[in-house]
Design a protein around this nucleic acid. Structure first.
Lengths: 339, 339
DNA sequence: AACAATATACTCTAAGTGAGTATAAGTCGC
DNA sequence: GCGACTTATACTCACTTAGAGTATATTGTT
């Protein structure tokens, strides 16, 4: 008779069901009389979805509203054929949304991320939808509530200066100022470097390390200081996941035609531009943007006109699939700022 | 007395240790008298590493030599702080290699990937090293043994034509020829489309679906047909993981200065070019490549000369960190083919 | 009819790319 | 020590793309 301590079972991922004094395994009654602990570990596998949409200039992210906003999530089940199907199932269950495009983002698995005893692995996905009304207590929020420093459509936001100032303070008093300052330069476009929208995650990570976002404190059960620059937090590490997604999507639109997942079948070139601007967080030069998408063969005119809007009516365009055959990396590019 | 079937334990991730007839858990002796199955699922979490290096024109991948080559792998332990640290620990243990650059690639979790009863989740990483001698039975192999259709340095390999022919056959007899043919066009640069090195995974997936790689059969316990185009297989889905890595690295070198992870501190421009060519699988125009990396400020001369090689001695260059501050996406670009 | 708002066409310049030619500076065989 | 060979490096030229504007066209509003 060999004893396995309940502690061990606990480490298998355990809790909450009354048990008799002993549990016992009848090995003879089974088809698998040999056992090893090699693969056993106390892990839960979650799936998190960053679901993005854009409505007239507003970049949106779908969040579940609790005390603090959280990403829609689900757990992997033994019956899910693939991770992506598990994700789609989870989203459908929690929000009733029809997801078109979905891509895997990143897998998060730091030991202490859940705060609980067991490790909580999470496979995060980025999904794009044309805006729909979600069910349950899911709700569309603006991306930039959570990342105010990322929206440069009306010029460099003033928060950025404050953040950079405090980051530099933090870096200077740290153990390796040089490396830290280089990271700040690159991430925030300081001292001659150019601001790169794609580096959203690097920026969030710096802010976290420097203690400039609330999670840096709440993650460790501490109270946040009162003088933090304003920005909305999310539960656990969900804002880090969202920052990963923001960087990814900003990069992706420049070399894959994913923007069209966010637009209706027919759209004007200005609508297209606004969606790109909302995601990229910058304003673009209108005439050049137009030239770019038309000459790249990314869109084709439908002959139909947009009605009921201000000014001269615009032609309605649609995505031109042929471009996939013609160009190796068809995307929208970002033809300069301000225009 | 409650029985837990050994089958259940088996599904917790099991194998190989002789046991007495019964195992028994003394709940009273433990600090955790309550149990739930809420988080328990039959999952094992593995880590797989695609470790790349380049030696004089040969792009290398580190593989463990069993019956069929396999990627170095390890398992996530409860003591690993982060996934990346777990990976570095695994690599150090299995191969004695010092890994510099490592990035997460993708998480694989299809239900049937391991072939066993439990789901085998695998978090795959891409790592870059300057070539070192591995220990154990790990060995450097050429990438293109496994992906002969990817090496276009000496022109489009002849296999490509055969593969495309058979893919088209497969597509035409399938349920949706149009979509399948579009995929083939884009992935293999057919009918006017340009070959894009980055699409290595799409190509592998098409070949798998069309039954043109051995794994398409062996995965399901079937024997492979005799008339498959020649290429080396890997265990389980490791070749799919490698294809993911190949595509990723080919993309990444164009916008991040990761090539330098594969080169010694000082190198000639030709060495740099050969490394890029080996990875990208194409030949580049020498003069333009030179102009590109110099004018982009990616490298700086050291004044020292390379000795003991053929022809006029070349200057030794080094990576110029300053470029990170100056350019948003510093990479090598691929200035045209053949030259 | 004037104006506000948007669409669309076109221009000009600077910078970057693709494909070469020309020349320099070594090694190797004899 | 010479010529063939090999590699490095400089420079040219045509062509495309990008950045920043100006100009003109169509609509609705007042």
């Amino acid at each position: 008779m060999t004893l396995i301590s309940a502690t061990l079972l606990t480490r298998l991922g355990v809790g909450v069901v009354p048990l008799p004094d002993r549990i016992s395994v009848d090995v003879r009654s089974s088809s698998a009389p040999l056992i090893t602990w090699g693969f056993v570990s106390s892990i839960s596998v979650g799936l998190h979805a960053v679901i993005a949409a854009v409505t007239s200039d507003r970049p949106l992210i779908l969040l579940v509203n609790g005390d603090v906003p959280a990403l829609p999530a689900g757990h992997l089940r033994d019956t899910d054929e693939t991770l992506e199907l598990a994700l789609r199932r989870s989203i459908a269950t929690e929000t009733d949304l029809e997801v078109g495009y979905a891509e895997q983002l990143y897998t998060f698995g730091d030991l202490h991320r859940g705060g609980g005893a067991a490790r909580e692995l999470s496979v995060a996905y980025l999904a794009l939808v044309r805006q729909q009304v979600p069910s349950g207590n899911a709700e569309w929020r603006s991306w930039y509530e959570f990342f105010p420093w990322e929206d440069h459509r009306l010029g460099r936001p003033t928060v950025v200066d404050e953040l950079v100032r405090r980051l530099v303070e933090w870096a200077s008093s740290g153990s390796d100022p040089e490396t830290a300052l280089e990271r700040i330069d690159i991430a925030f476009g300081r001292s001659g470097a150019t601001w790169d929208g794609v580096r959203a995650l690097e920026r969030y990570e710096l802010l976290y390390e420097a203690g400039l976002v609330a999670e840096a404190y709440t993650d460790h059960g501490r109270d946040e200081p009162r003088d933090l620059p304003r920005s909305m937090a999310m539960v656990s590490d969900h804002r880090r996941i969202a920052a990963t997604a923001l960087g990814r999507i900003r990069g992706k639109i420049t070399y894959r035609p994913v923007v069209f997942e966010l637009l209706p079948e027919r759209f004007t070139l200005l609508q297209l531009q606004r969606v790109v601007e909302a995601l990229a967080g910058v304003r673009l030069h209108k005439q050049n943007f137009r030239r770019l998408v038309e000459r790249a063969g990314l869109v084709e005119g439908t002959g139909r006109m947009d009605t009921g809007s201000m000014g001269r009516p615009a032609e309605l365009f649609r995505f031109r699939r042929g471009v996939l055959r013609e160009r190796p990396r068809p995307g929208v590019g970002l033809p300069g700022i301000r225009g």
